[in-house]
Write a protein that binds this DNA or RNA. Structure first.
Lengths: 226, 226
DNA sequence: CCAAAAGTGTTAGGAGTACACCCATGG
DNA sequence: CCATGGGTGTACTCCTAACACTTTTGG
């Protein structure tokens, strides 16, 4: 190199989704220090020298929620000069999907002030985090239709109603129950258990996601256009 | 900030695709200096302090090929520690699509040694560029099926045979001519010109891409599953 | 007149969509 | 016995995929 490259700071930000009460929700933290103190933001932090980008994202995710072993996917990198008043900061954004039963009711540890917001009712966000969140939502909606990410938001066993609820929450539109169930059955990726969930009304059968069957389907272009 | 973030270098790398002789091709440059001197690599360079990531990618693209105003899309960011022996370097990878008639036969300006390789016959690549290229290919194939990126690889006017050739080159499989043409017609995104291309045999009508019609189709989920 | 790519129609099968009723349980 | 969500079948439409022959030109 004949010249010196400009040093740039690199962060990861993680849009953490879960389903709460049949609503798609996002974890936000309130900034406790400047810049943009008091504003809500997507959790994140600086990448350390010796960790990969994904490791950094998993570390932050764990620090904020206590969860590990969840679905995590790189989203996009945002690096406009001026997006952070502290200097030139490029952020690699990720999104994570946390099952309802794993999502801590009161998340946060180092960030004292953190809570879940319904994706429909988001506050103003710091930096360009509004843009990042919009992008994450769009990606999630798209991926729902050609992958099995939806299952990542459910616990290990779930009812068909709960599964449909996930799709409806994310797509923000009602789905036809019969068509939904027929499609799921056609795909053959669910294995019924012998248990049922009793939730007041008629008990609903519990199913388990059979990931193994899915790999073959992907090649054939069989998707999830509910 | 209570502590000092680790400084990291940020580069952009651009996978530049074109179609040459009905084959999908990629522009590579031979590294003229260490590390990995002599190996082929994806063109790229360091991001400057005051330019956005996309601006940096467009600048590098222009420096390598002389072209501007082409399709450019952010691909993924790669940042494993150790991917570059010079230190901690995060690269934001892009991919670009250059029309056959815009792609310079002998590209390169600052990189003295640059040439097009058929995507089927790639040499060993420096750093993790092999991984980046695989990822770009996968993305391109996927996008072909639900967007109109394919048209970016053709000149302004083109025959249906040439269009089909683009799809076949990227998907690496033959397509049924009648079904292909019916689908294109159904989409209604081509406008016939009054010109024909004479290439030895029966003259073929030239078409123009009518981008305006496409926006509506996207909302309806009408795609390109050839 | 021959080779080569351009151009065109039909049919059968499968997936998507719309739609209405009975069932099992808890209160 | 009633309210609530669980669970099922049918008919129509549209897209997909498979398939073969004629046309126009250059050599």
């Amino acid at each position: 190199m004949a010249w010196k490259p400009d040093p740039i700071l690199v962060t990861v930000d993680i849009v953490i989704f879960t389903i709460r009460e049949r609503e798609l929700s996002v974890l936000l933290v309130r900034r406790g220090s400047p810049p943009m103190k008091g504003l809500w933001a997507i959790p994140g932090g600086f990448v350390k020298k010796s960790e990969s980008l994904e490791d950094a994202a998993r570390r932050e995710l764990h620090e904020e929620t206590g969860v590990s072993n969840v679905y995590l996917e790189q989203l996009y990198s945002f690096g406009d000069p001026g997006r952070d008043p502290r200097g030139r900061v490029v952020t690699v954004a990720y999104f994570a999907l946390v099952a309802e039963d794993k999502a801590p009711l009161t998340p946060g540890s180092d960030a004292a002030d953190a809570r879940w917001f319904r994706a429909r009712e988001l506050p103003a966000l710091a930096f360009d985090h509004g843009e990042i969140l919009d992008y994450a939502l769009e990606r999630l909606r798209n991926k729902l239709e050609y992958t099995t990410v939806g299952f990542q938001l459910l616990s290990e066993k779930f009812t068909l109603g709960e599964l449909q609820g996930v799709y409806e929450a994310i797509l923000a539109r009602p789905l036809d129950k019969r068509n939904f169930r027929r499609k799921v059955e056609l795909l053959g990726i669910l294995r019924p258990t012998k248990e049922v969930r009793r939730a007041g009304r008629r008990p609903a059968r519990l199913y388990r996601f059979a990931a193994s069957r899915f790999e073959k389907l992907k090649d054939k272009g069989i998707l999830f256009p509910f």
